[in-house]
Deep mutational scan, measured.
Amino acid sequence: MFYPNSPQTSPQLTQIPYGQQYAMMQRQIQQPYHPFATTEPQARLYPYHYQGPIQQEQGGFITQQSTAASPQYVQMRVTPVDQSIMSGYPNQTANGSSSSSFNYNIHPQQQQQQQQQQQQLRHHAMPVGSVPLQDDRYRKQLIVNYLAPDVTSTDLHELFSRFGELDGARIIYDKQTNMSKGYGFVYFCHAEDAKEAVERMSGYEFHGKWLKVGYSTNPLNIVPSNSSPYVHAGSRGAAG
């Protein structure tokens, strides 16, 4: 039997160049792979992502010199942007860049009308829970959420009447099932009393439920100042 490094198959040491006398086997001759043993700084910083320098080929596509990437890492192929796409944008300079302001050559009167329309939209648009300043009635009506099913309009009136005089209180019921929808409205005579009720009743436990109280901004629920107070009856038909 002959071994790869046996004296019968191995040459004389004098015939082997210096430095390879003890590297006779194939696994010894093959050098191990060192990912950080390279002179390129990109490979030292990113050993798993770097795959060699990027070269520009004919046709405008950018390719990489090395083989496919590892399945664990996804390499994105980048193509140059066609400058003709950006030619339609206004205020574009000769080098292809555009300024931040756009001039669509709008007539001054049209621009003024658009600004007025935007101001009107901001004036009428009102986020949930906010209180408008032009109508004091919005500051007097509250919406009470997360009410228990057994709470009546009379219970709601008695709960909030300790903060001040009320114009009314009612629970909203479903017309088909005649069941409470879980929320109601309270109408105060003074805005200061309503503000105190919002601050003190939010998070209050009532009939096993934690109440959420806020201003009601729905104009359909506003009680006119010259109208008669609501009837605080315990029956659902009268309260709904």
Rank of each mutant, 00 (worst) to 15 (best):
V131M: 08
G240Y: 14
R44V: 15
I222E: 15
G168Y: 12
Q58A: 13
Q120W: 02
T63Q: 13
N145Y: 12
G168P: 11
L133D: 02
L142S: 10
V128Q: 14
T38R: 12
T217W: 01
R200A: 15
L133P: 11
I16N: 15
K140V: 01
S10K: 06
K212T: 08
Y22E: 09
P149Y: 01
L147H: 08
A23K: 03
E199F: 00
S87L: 15
E165Q: 08
V186T: 01
H34I: 00
Y204D: 00
F188D: 02
T14R: 14
G214A: 05
E158K: 02
E192I: 05
P11R: 01
Y138P: 10
M24L: 07
M179R: 08
K212V: 08
R170F: 00
A148F: 00
Q112N: 07
H157Y: 10
P219L: 05
E57Q: 09
T177P: 03
V231N: 01
N105W: 00
Y33R: 00
Y89Q: 02
V151E: 13
Q117C: 09
G168Q: 01
F185D: 09
N145P: 03
S100W: 13
I54C: 06
P219A: 03
A238V: 13
S100Y: 15
G208F: 10
M76A: 07
P90A: 12
F160S: 08
I16Q: 05
A169D: 13
L211C: 07
F61K: 10
S97N: 05
Q134F: 01
Q26P: 14
F163D: 11
V74H: 07
Y173Q: 04
Q92Y: 13
P17V: 12
Q56A: 15
K140I: 01
P127L: 12
Y215E: 05
G182K: 15
P90N: 09
D167I: 09
P80F: 15
R162I: 06
G19K: 05
Y183R: 01
G203R: 05
Y138C: 01
P71I: 11
L121F: 09
N95A: 02
T67C: 00
R122G: 06
D155V: 11
N91G: 05
I54F: 07
A43K: 01
L121W: 15
Q55S: 05
Q117M: 15
F163R: 07
F102W: 12
F61W: 04
I172N: 06
I29V: 05
S161W: 08
G184A: 02
G203M: 13
Q141S: 00
A23T: 09
Q42L: 07
N226C: 02
P7F: 03
H49I: 13
Q111L: 11
Y204C: 08
S87N: 07
R170C: 02
S202C: 01
D136M: 01
P108T: 11
I172T: 03
A43D: 09
F206C: 02
P132L: 05
E196Y: 13
T14H: 15
K195L: 05
S235L: 02
G208L: 07
G182R: 13
Q58N: 00
G168K: 13
W210A: 00
A37R: 06
P47I: 15
S235P: 06
N221R: 10
E199R: 07
Y22G: 08
P47E: 09
Q8A: 06
H49T: 11
S228Q: 06
Q72M: 15
K181P: 15
P90I: 03
G182N: 15
Q26V: 14
E196S: 11
S180H: 11
Q117H: 08
Q26W: 00
N145L: 02
T9D: 12
N5M: 12
S180C: 03
E205K: 12
Y18K: 01
T154K: 07
A197R: 11
Q92E: 15
V151A: 06
H157L: 02
D193E: 02
A191W: 00
E57M: 00
P17K: 03
L45G: 10
A233N: 09
Y73I: 09
S225E: 02
F163W: 15
S130L: 02
F185V: 02
G237H: 07
T38N: 12
G52R: 09
V231P: 08
Q26F: 00
L13V: 02
P4F: 00
Q116S: 08
S130Q: 11
P80H: 08
T9G: 12
H107K: 12
S99L: 13
S100T: 09
N91T: 07
R137P: 12
I171C: 13
R139S: 11
E158Y: 01
Q111F: 15
A238C: 15
Q119A: 04
Q119E: 14
N218S: 05
F2S: 08
Q115W: 08
Y48R: 00
I106S: 04
